[in-house]
Amino acid sequence: MSFPLDRLAVQLDWNLLRTFMVIVQERSITAAAQRLNVSQPSVSAALRRLEERLELRLVDRGAGQTFIVTRAGEAVYREALEIYGGVVRLNEIGSEAGRAISGNIVIQRSSHLEMDDIMRVLEEFRAKHPAVTFSVRSTSCHEVAQALLQRVSSVGFCTRVDPAQRLRALTLTPQEFGVYCGPNHSLYRRHDVDPDLVSASDVVGFEEDQMAGALSALAVYRVRYGIGARMIAAATGIVDLVQLIENSTVIGCLSRAHAIKYGIRLWQIPVAAPPPLVDMFSLVDAERHMTPAEAALIDHLHQAGLVADLRPSSTV
Rank of each mutant, 00 (worst) to 15 (best):
D309Q: 08
H302L: 09
S186H: 06
G73F: 09
G182V: 10
R126T: 05
S186M: 07
E123D: 13
V278P: 03
I93Q: 09
G305M: 09
V10I: 10
V22C: 02
L81R: 15
H129G: 01
W14N: 07
R168P: 01
H300Y: 06
K128P: 00
R57H: 08
A131H: 10
Q210T: 13
M280L: 13
N247R: 15
H142W: 07
N104S: 13
R120V: 12
L54F: 11
Q40T: 14
G305T: 11
L170Y: 03
R256D: 04
P276M: 09
G86V: 01
H302T: 13
E52L: 12
L16G: 04
E294R: 14
A214E: 03
V307L: 05
L241Y: 00
S186C: 06
G263I: 08
P270C: 01
A273Q: 10
I260W: 12
R120N: 11
P276V: 06
S95T: 14
A200F: 04
C158T: 15
R120H: 10
V223R: 09
I238C: 14
D202Q: 10
N247K: 12
A31H: 12
F206C: 04
F20L: 04
H302W: 14
F134K: 03
V203C: 03
L56T: 03
V24F: 03
E294I: 13
S138H: 15
R57K: 14
D117N: 07
I264S: 09
T173V: 14
D202P: 01
A45V: 11
S110L: 07
E123R: 09
L310R: 14
S154D: 10
A212G: 15
D285E: 00
L297F: 03
R109E: 12
E96S: 10
Q210V: 14
D279M: 11
A229I: 00
R168F: 05
V87H: 02
R78W: 05
A257F: 02
Y84G: 01
E52N: 12
E208G: 07
Q165H: 07
Y221L: 02
L81E: 15
R109V: 15
A9G: 01
H191S: 13
V76R: 04
E208Y: 01
C253F: 04
P312K: 12
G85R: 04
V193T: 09
